[in-house]
Amino acid sequence: MAHDPTPFERFIQGIIPENPVYRQLLGLCPTLAVTNNMQSAITMAGAVTFVLLCANIITSLIRNLLKPHLRIVIFTLTIATFVTLVDRFLAAYMYTMSKSLGPYIPLIIVNCIIIARCEVCASKQDVFTAASDAIGQSMGFALALASIAGVREILGTGMFFGIRVLPAAWPDWVIMALPPGAFLTFGLLLGVVNFIESKRAEKKIHKG
């Protein structure tokens, strides 16, 4: 890139052009694990947004104090602190959701999206840029989770957000709500996104 992207450009970049899940293939573990219904997907996206925003802000504030060989440890400890906060919050106010998400909330600590954003962006930029980058990336993450969860919930149970959208005669494709469905849905959607992206790139070349 010729120029350093402005905060707003970073925000937009995170949503579609550099979507963390579809374009960078980061954070696949929650993407596959919690997308069997919309509610848990949205909760997970909310938790990741909070942790990513806080971790990016803190990293950006202490970026001049970081020692190169210790930075990964500092990042993970910062993230682990905020994940503990989220985990306690969910256990207190959304107990059933916290039970159903189970170990995947603590696993946000080792989610590559957050470590990658701390490393690539927040440890080099000022607080405002880091915050807008965090929000953009987590919107992209939420969009990706919602797209996969939408397909899986509708095909797997005929419902969307727990409301029936397909006729009752729909034979539920139970496999979509089970682990194999996650791999298949994400694989197919990833192929479709790649296809659209390559078409757009071709168009650009023709225009230019």
Binding site: P179, A182, L184, F186, G191, N194
Partner: peptide
């Protein structure tokens, strides 16, 4: 197909393995 090369086909194969 070109769009499915790399990660996409790997995920689909993983889905069949999971089954």
């Amino acid at each position: 197909p070109k769009a499915f090369q790399g990660a996409a086909i790997t995920l689909i194969v993983a889905g069949i393995l999971a089954m």
